[in-house]
Amino acid sequence: MLCNTLKTNGFCAKALNFYLTYIMPKITLTVNGKTHTHEVEGRLLLVHYLRDTLGLTGTHVGCDTSSCGTCTIHLDGKAIKSCSLLAAQADGSSITTIEGLAPEGELHPLQEGFKEEHGLQCGFCTPGMIMCAADLLSRNPDPTEQEIREGLEGNICRCTGYHNIVRAIQYAAQKSAVAV
């Protein structure tokens, strides 16, 4: 909380940096509907908080330049790369990861689409792809092929050549349209 106050007060960057490095901020946030409170090291990235502190290992780390998108999650309903945010900055937010996208035992239309259309091979980029696509479909429920491809710009898949990922997202879009 203090951290957010510092930010909003436009506290100088150096002090914030010092604070984040040497002081353990206490954060409270909701992840997949469950509230968590932890003291975290200031420099801890959100992705490492999710993976190491909460054990939600479906969110992956594929690069160190926020370029690959394997760590994509939803923060307050929007897709973000969880490697480009400190855990402390996520204080007070509501987060959804791949593990919480659908109720236990059920599949989200995108998860179903990825399976039906063979939109994954090694599975490493898949959670990030699905979370990114979910955000895309929430903004644009009936995207064209080109819009899907542009929407996936921030996510890299090395296995599929994207062909079946595009089809998986089209599948989910169609299925959701029918459901509505």
């Binding site: 969110t59 593990e99 990825f114 399976k115 994954l120 699905i130």
Partner: peptide
Amino acid sequence: KSVKRIEDKRFITGKGRYTDDIV
């Protein structure tokens, strides 16, 4: 036949277990 993949279930739900996931 194009049988849907058995392994997909764990990957699409974030339950795949890669080495770095192991503690």
